[in-house]
């Protein structure tokens, strides 16, 4: 049971801490959000980690009000946060950015480095027993956390609108369960990010899945501001940029599962935005 212990202990640590500190920053002017639709856990569970991150940023912004961070993983939560509370910055997935760029005036400032990756790639996985060779022939249900932003995913992966896809993109918060359902034939396909794909391939289920279709290089999740950044936001961005080289930030970055933050590669993002717009126009 040793390995089991090593599993439960970190989880317990999160659970324990989550009950200790609930959301605290309703009236705090310096709020930021980590928006990851479909990711597991809850705002409460992630609160301790977000608090550590916020504390780190606060410590680097003396003379300003304390910073508060929050994790949201549903579209509804994100809508409320972005439209009503208006955070000073947010970390969003690329599909979320593309879908809501205009609505919230997202200005990309930095790119994350999840697992050291400087680029992402989305894939459509099917069971190895599935005889089809092109995504156009795939029908039925395809699941994935990416399906929480179906329009952007459809345009990025297939250069079509979601409504014209031959299969139904079904959002899920349980990607692993969905992967097992694909293996068992209960689902027809799975949409995954590069990081999710790597994790799946390390599990026994990975051997029963194959990639039917993949995007080209995509930017990793982005740090965005709502509008042009002011001086405080500029300071926050500089602090985020410096985390990579700060030894005191290494443990925090490990917990955030990123190697740090870097500049956005506009050579990739700008054509992507154009492609997204193009794919939304009627053919």
């Amino acid at each position: 049971m040793k390995s089991l212990r090593s599993v439960i202990l970190p989880v317990i640590a999160v659970l324990l801490a989550s009950t200790a500190s609930a959301a605290t920053a309703a009236d705090d002017p310096l709020l930021f959000d980590l928006i990851q639709p479909g990711s597991p856990g809850s705002t409460e569970e992630a609160a301790p980690l977000m608090a550590r991150w916020a504390d780190y940023l606060s410590a680097h912004l003396p003379g300003h009000p304390p910073i508060t961070g929050r994790y949201v993983n549903t579209n509804e939560q994100a809508r409320i946060v972005l439209s009503q509370i208006k955070p000073r910055f947010a970390v969003v997935t690329v599909p979320y950015y593309l879908e809501h760029r205009s609505a919230y005036n997202f200005q990309p400032q930095l790119a994350t480095r999840p697992g050291g990756r400087t680029e992402d790639r989305y894939r459509l996985l099917v069971s190895t027993t599935n005889p089809i060779t092109t995504w156009e022939k795939l029908t039925g249900d395809v699941a994935g956390t990416l399906c929480h932003t179906p329009e952007a995913v459809a345009r990025l992966l297939f250069q079509r609108t979601a409504s014209t896809l031959p299969f139904h993109c079904q959002p899920t918060d349980r990607l692993l369960r969905a992967a097992r359902q694909v293996v068992r034939g209960e689902l027809n396909g799975l949409l995954v990010t590069d990081e999710q794909d790597t994790s799946l391939m390390a599990l026994p289920e990975g051997a029963s899945l194959k990639a039917l279709h993949a995007t080209g290089p995509l930017p990793p999740p982005l740090v965005v501001t709502l509008g042009r950044p002011d001086a405080v936001q500029q300071s926050i961005i500089q602090t985020l940029l410096g985390m990579k080289d700060d030894p005191t930030a290494h443990e925090l970055l490990t917990e955030l599962r990123t190697d740090g933050f870097g500049p956005v590669d506009l050579n990739v993002l700008t054509p992507l935005q154009e492609a997204f717009e193009r794919a939304g126009k009627p053919r």
Partner: peptide, 16 residues
């Protein structure tokens, strides 16, 4: 719990 471990990339723990 397994999903959380998956999101955290802890494949070995998922197996347990």
């Amino acid at each position: 719990i397994e999903e959380k471990l998956f999101a955290a990339g802890r494949e070995a723990d998922i197996k347990s």
